[in-house]
């Protein structure tokens, strides 16, 4: 909790921050290169938002959808951040 440990913790993470930023950015840029794929992502994003909005109030920005290009297969990753108080209520 000290000043020193804060600095230490932040420093340790800079490469993982870089990796996360790159993965999000490249997911968008790769989509932009192939029109079909980006349309798919936009559509998925819209429909997933609709389904979630029926049950929970979630911010547009808290839903991340990305496609990872792999050598053998591609992976669709959907990341939804649910407000804390709400997830707590449901759990109990």
């Amino acid at each position: 909790m000290s000043f020193l440990s804060n600095i230490f913790a932040r420093r340790q993470q800079s490469s993982s921050v870089a990796k996360d930023r790159l993965q999000i950015l490249l997911a968008h840029e790769r989509g932009a290169g192939e029109a079909g794929e980006s349309d798919l992502i936009r559509q998925l994003h819209k429909e997933i938002m609709e389904v979630i909005a029926r049950h929970v109030a979630v911010d547009q920005d808290k839903v991340q959808i990305k496609v990872d290009r792999g050598s053998g297969c591609s992976m669709l990753e959907i990341d939804v951040e649910v407000p804390q108080e709400l997830s707590g209520k449901r759990g109990s």
Partner: peptide, 15 residues
């Protein structure tokens, strides 16, 4: 020291 992207990180991103 996690101050630089590792070999694994770059390979995972660029595949």
């Amino acid at each position: 020291r996690k101050e630089m992207l590792s070999v694994e990180d770059v390979l995972e991103i660029l595949s």
